[in-house]
Structures are given as C-alpha cells and as structure tokens.
C-alpha cells in the first residue's frame, strides 16, 4: 500500500482510508464473506485514538427496502402480511418443539427413555389401583390394552395443557428481547407432546398384538381422533397460556381442571363403567370422545362415531382459531405485564 506512509502524517482522513483498504483486501481473501480472525493490520489501524469518520465506499449488498412489506404497529394492531408471519412461524415451531424435548431430558440419566418409562410407571400405579382395588375390568377388552389406550391419550392431554398453560409465562423473558410470532410458544408443547405420544403408541401396538386383540383396517380411522386431540390440545394451550400471562390464577385453575378431567374421562376405566344417564358427559368431553372412539377402532374393530368426532373437530378448530385471534390481539401487551 504505497499511500500508507503518506497517510501516516494526516491523522484525520488517512487512517480511515487505511482501514477500509485493509478491510476490502481481507474480504476478497475470505471470498466475500467478512470474517474477523483477530489478526492483521485492521486492529492496529482502528485502535489508534481518533480514527475519524467512517469513509463510506458503499458496497450496497442489501436488498432495496421496497422488496420488503411494511410492518405497521400501533397500540391496537399489528399489520403484517399473513405470508410473512407464517413463513417465519413454521421452521421456528419445529425448532422450538425440538428445544422443548431437548431441555426436558437435559442432564438426566434416562434422557429420552423417560418418554417410555414415565407412562409405564403411571400405568403400573393407576392400573394397580383401578383393577385390584376398584375391580375395574376392561369392559370386554383386555384391561391393559384398554387402559394403555386411554393413558397414551391422557399423557398427551396432560403434557400439552399443563406445559402449554405456563409456557408463555415461563418464556416471558424472551418476549422482551426479540420479536417472533408468539403463538409458537404455546404450540410447541403440543408438538413436543406428539413425540411422547408416538413412543407410547408404539408400546400400545405391541401390547395390542401381545394381548391378542390384533389390528384391523379400522385403525386407519385413528387419524380423525388424533386430529381432534391435537386441535383441542392446541386450542386450550394457546388460550390458557395467553390468559396466564395476565392472570396467574389460570395456571392453578388448569391444574385443578386437569384432575377433574382425568376422572371425567374414561382413561383408566371403560366407557361402559359410566352409568347410562351420565354418558353424555363423555360425549361432550372432546378427550372422552377421542378415547372412546380410539378404543372402538383400534381395539373393538368397529368404525368410530364419525358425527361426534366431526362435531368436536369443527368446534375445536373454531376454538383454536378464536384462541389464536385472542393471542394476537393481546400479544402487544404481554411484554408490559409479563
């Protein structure tokens, strides 16, 4: 660099030019990607006191702003193209859910094996109480198959609702630091719950085969109860998580509600054990409908109650849409109160 010596005397402009020259050179070496390695004359040049204003030789690598849509934020609304929001949501949801699973079993010896050990332990405890003390039978089905079906579904409901409800509150520190679609947070426990569901379902299939129940073509209809399960789980999670940010009472209410729901849903007992005049409770309870109809198509080899499941799917979808709308209409306030 011939003008290095010449520039040495002129403190004001000379050094600034020096810095830029060196930077450009290094950029070329690194193939256009500026990488700071910590060596070289750049530091020496810029560390001297008083390096003057940055000499602007515009390289302009950014896209013109007109190619991006405006995002408008006021007290009441955020106007953002739906495509824009959705595009950033999907990869993030996947990653957020993976993080949830990662975190749950970090620093634990059994790690991911807990997804299997946990339901087995619960099954052992509840199964013993219900079948030995309360003398509940399988209602015409092997008790283990019947109960494990219920438990597989219940574990998902419990995880999604319990963790979903406190999810926003737990991650509220993140809300003030970076913007991202907030619905990711309560949806992640639901997605993460699907992984546990998958593990429990694999065991369920083994039990069903071992106990001689067998699997028929009717099992393909399991997609419908699964859909109802996920939609309802997501809807409750999003709604309760949003309310919890503003009212901590919600987390306690959900905890109590879950206990009630566990008793009201035929998880550890067959639907037939419920007195005839109380069966409507099971029908209006979406999770009850899911458990009953999963047993029907998986264990009893009959087609499920399409109308009932369809009804719950429609109501659940509407609830989910409402919950997402609710979250979005108050998400701007969360940072202020969380």
């Amino acid at each position: 660099m011939p003008d290095e010596q010449a520039a040495a005397g002129e403190r004001d402009l000379g050094e600034a030019v020096d810095v830029i020259d060196l930077v450009d050179e290094r950029d070329e070496e690194a193939g256009g990607e500026p990488v700071a390695s910590g060596q070289g004359g750049v530091w020496e040049a810029s560390s001297r006191e008083g390096f003057g204003p940055l000499e602007r030789t515009r390289r302009a690598r950014v896209t013109p702003p007109s190619e991006h849509p405006w995002v408008v934020r006021t007290a009441d609304t955020t106007i953002m193209p739906a495509k824009h929001r959705l595009r950033s949501s999907l990869p993030l949801l996947r990653m957020y859910s993976a993080r949830q699973v990662q975190l749950r079993y970090r620093q634990s010896i059994l790690g991911l094996a807990w997804t299997v050990v946990q339901p087995v332990a619960i099954m052992a405890i509840y199964g013993f109480i219900f079948s030995a003390f309360l003398e509940v039978d399988g209602g015409g089905l092997p008790y283990l198959s019947m109960a494990w079906t219920g438990l597989t579904i219940w574990m998902f409901v419990q995880a999604a609702l319990q963790m979903g409800t406190v999810s926003l509150q737990n991650d509220s520190w993140l809300l003030g630091r970076v913007w991202f679609p907030r619905e990711i947070i309560p949806l992640a426990p639901v997605v993460a719950g699907l992984i546990d569901l998958l593990a429990a379902a694999a065991i369920l299939i083994v039990i069903v085969i071992v106990q001689g129940v067998g699997i028929s073509i009717h099992a393909v209809s399991l997609v419908l109860p699964l859909l109802v399960l996920v939609v309802w789980g997501a809807a409750i999670s999003v709604f309760c998580a949003t309310v919890t940010i503003f009212l901590r009472d919600m987390a306690t209410i959900v905890g109590l509600g879950l206990r009630l729901l566990f008793i009201a849903t035929p998880v550890m007992y067959p639907e037939k054990a419920v007195p005839e005049h109380l069966r409507w409770i099971n029908a209006v309870n979406p999770f009850g409908a899911v458990v009953t109809n999963t047993r029907a198509s998986l264990l009893s080899h009959v087609w499920p109650n399409w109308e009932l499941l369809g009804f719950h799917l429609v109501i659940g979808s509407a609830f989910l849409a409402g919950a997402l709308w609710y979250l979005r209409s108050v998400e701007r306030r969360m940072v202020d109160v969380a």
């Binding site: 950014v62 896209t63 702003p65 991006h68 849509p69 405006w70 995002v71 408008v72 934020r73 006021t74 007290a75 955020t78 809300l175 003030g176 630091r177 970076v178 913007w179 701007r332 306030r333 940072v335 202020d336």
Partner: peptide
C-alpha cells in the same frame, strides 16, 4: 423498532429483517 414493545399511541412502521442486540 424491534417490535417487542408496542406503542401506547401513534404508529411504528418498519420493513425488512431486523436483528437486535438489545440485551
């Protein structure tokens, strides 16, 4: 600007990807 806080009144318009090192 980062969008983590909403205005009490008025309007904030931004475009493009915003990276922030706020905390």
């Amino acid at each position: 600007i980062a969008g983590v806080v909403a205005p009490t009144s008025g309007e904030v318009r931004t475009r493009g990807r915003i990276a922030s090192i706020i905390e």
